[in-house]
Nucleic acid binder design. Structure first.
Length: 292
DNA sequence: ATGACGTCCTGCCTGC
DNA sequence: TGCAGGCAGGACGTCA
């Protein structure tokens, strides 16, 4: 699932290819994915605008447009952004009869939900599970549907995410540490993969209550979060199921995972079997021996 | 305010 | 082989 490193990889690939390009057409293949405003207004508002920058906030990918507009993508569980050549034949907008597959290009855009036609290529938003969303904001709009976006806190890789900040956010909390790592108003950009990996590196069991962490453990966890995210970015993200890069290639960080997707396999450190347990409503992997 | 959990969504996997 | 049912999980709403 796309977390901070995956979105950052997409951003880095996208930026040089789409900056200063004009959106010449917008095809909404499934209107549920338009989170704001109404799908009809959405399309009209972005056509003929130019992309001025490609940025990112936690797991949100942002295309800055002319006229002070922002196109904000959230890929949720299975979303992907694909850049495809212009030669690709595009369907006409027929949301009622749309079946998900587009002739001749089934593999590439089988689950296309939104297509932005740019001056030199097509930007395709795929989302098999249809939980992903796209939002268009004008000026200083802050619609309720984007509450989470406006409540994001610091990203663990940012300088503001230091020991004082982290300790202040978690030290008095009773919740499971795993669940606080997933909280976007505490650790913006962290998801299930990187939370499990960071806890492993810090040697902390995901079942621990946050207040029970010692100062040294909070510090270790802080460094682990930063390390695991930075290494995820360096390796173009983690492909375990749906995630892929803008040209369809896989990421590489799956080759360096210690616990995620490794249940029942031996721990790289001690050889114990990696445990899979539902914690904080998430499939959570950890080493029963190395993580205390 | 906090913590736990249900809901959304649909392709895919498992088991009969 | 076919099908039903369960699972995956990020964000958000609800409830205690």
């Amino acid at each position: 699932m796309p977390e901070l490193p995956e979105i950052e990889t997409i951003r880095r690939e996208l930026k040089p290819k789409i900056i200063n390009k004009k959106i010449t057409d917008c095809i909404v293949l499934r209107k549920e994915i338009i989170g704001y405003p109404e799908p009809k207004i959405f399309g009209k508002s972005i056509v003929s605008e130019t992309i001025t920058d490609v940025t990112r906030k936690a797991k949100y990918l942002i295309l800055n447009l002319t006229q002070n507009k922002q196109l904000i993508f959230h890929l949720r569980l299975s979303g992907a952004i694909i850049l495809s050549p212009h030669s690709l034949s595009l369907p006409s907008f027929d949301a009622e009869n749309y079946s998900g597959a587009i002739d001749g290009t089934k593999n590439l855009i089988k689950f296309a939900r939104l297509i932005l036609k740019l001056s030199e290529c097509n930007l395709i938003f795929e989302e098999p599970r249809a939980l992903g969303r796209v939002y268009l904001l004008k000026g200083n709009e802050q619609p309720d549907v984007l509450k989470g976006y406006f409540n994001l806190s610091h990203e663990p890789i940012s300088p503001e995410f230091d020991f004082a900040y982290f300790k202040n956010k978690i030290a008095k909390r009773k919740a499971l540490i795993k669940s606080l790592l997933l909280d976007q108003s505490i650790c913006a950009g962290i998801g299930n993969i990187y939370s499990d990996e960071a806890l492993f590196r810090a040697g902390i069991k995901p079942l621990r209550r946050a207040y029970s962490l010692k100062t040294s453990e909070i510090f270790k966890l802080l460094l682990s979060l930063k390390d695991v995210l930075n290494q995820g970015i360096e390796n173009f993200g983690t492909t375990v199921s749906d995630y892929k890069r803008t040209d369809g290639r896989n990421g590489k960080f799956q080759n360096f995972l210690n616990v995620y997707a490794r249940e029942n396999e031996p721990c790289h450190i001690c050889g114990a079997k990696i445990t899979l347990k539902k914690i904080a409503s998430r499939g959570t992997r950890y080493c029963p021996k190395c993580q205390k």
